[in-house]
């Protein structure tokens, strides 16, 4: 069950978090302004190349789920607008949102994010809070999955749908929040963390040549996309 081979960090993993964040945010914002499918395809193509370089692999089932989701929203949009181009663009815009900034989350480890955030005026506690969300979201999501399993096992003894959601999911999740808070607070303080205290840095983050190249490539993709939207074809 345990992987004994680490996935090697790619050039995308080594980029400065702010570089990835900036590109993702700009692409998300630009996607909102584009309505030609081809223009959106340029942005989406760039993001898919980045995902491939980062060796982010999705299972066939995950690809199928994403495809199904995009098909559903595209179909619903078509039924509302009766415009194939509009519906396709709508789905592609979603696809850009699904890839643009989440790449940051998938290819940035919490330590890099803490360091990057500590270079901003954000309070240390807030930077740590963001790290904790990234770090513990998968754990709590797994706990929620187990709560749903426990609710399934209880069957009708758990009551109707509303009671199953309330007692079977919301109440346990509320307790989970408190339990996690107590344990993580203690763990942080036992390791010497205090929000107001200065910290040194094991491996300082530096933007390098890779960041420049990546930003330039992203800028080029954005320019091409904008040209396709407003000038070309």
């Amino acid at each position: 069950m345990f992987l004994h081979q680490d996935t090697p960090a790619t050039i995308i993993h080594r980029l400065h978090p702010f570089t990835k964040m900036a590109v993702g945010t700009v692409f998300s914002g630009l996607a909102l302004c584009l309505y030609r499918p081809l223009a959106l395809a340029v942005l989406l193509g760039f993001m898919l190349v980045v995902l491939a370089v980062a060796r982010v692999r999705l299972s066939p089932r995950q690809w199928f789920s994403i495809g199904l989701f995009l098909s559903v929203i595209s179909t619903l949009n078509f039924l509302a607008s009766h415009d194939t181009c509009h519906a396709t663009a709508y789905a592609m815009r979603f696809a850009v949102f699904l890839t643009a900034v989440p790449i940051l989350a998938l290819t940035t480890d919490p330590r890099q994010m803490t360091q990057a955030l500590s270079q901003t005026p954000l309070p240390g506690g807030l930077a740590m809070a963001l790290i904790l969300v990234w770090r513990f979201f998968p754990l709590m999501a797994e706990e929620a999955r187990q709560m749903r399993q426990a609710a399934l096992l209880r069957g009708s003894a758990a009551g109707g749908v509303a009671m199953r959601i309330y007692r079977g999911m919301l109440v346990p999740l509320a307790f989970c929040v408190i339990d996690y808070t107590d344990r993580i607070t203690l763990a942080l303080e036992l390791r010497g963390f205090t929000p107001a205290q200065r910290r040194t840095c094991h491996r300082p983050l530096k933007a390098g040549a890779a960041d420049v190249v990546f930003s330039a490539a992203a800028l080029l993709a954005a320019i091409v996309s904008a040209w396709v939207q407003w000038e070309g074809f």
């Binding site: 929203i73 949009n77 506690g125 740590m128 513990f136 709590m140 929620a144 509320a174 607070t185 303080e189």
Partner: peptide
């Protein structure tokens, strides 16, 4: 520290719930 951690864990819970609920409601536009 505890306040920040609690706020973070509350955000995680909001995110967990949103990740379950929103895929069902968003496609309906």
């Amino acid at each position: 520290t505890r306040d920040y951690v609690f706020a973070a864990m509350t955000s995680v819970a909001l995110l967990v719930v949103a990740s379950i609920v929103i895929p069902f409601t968003l496609p309906l536009s």
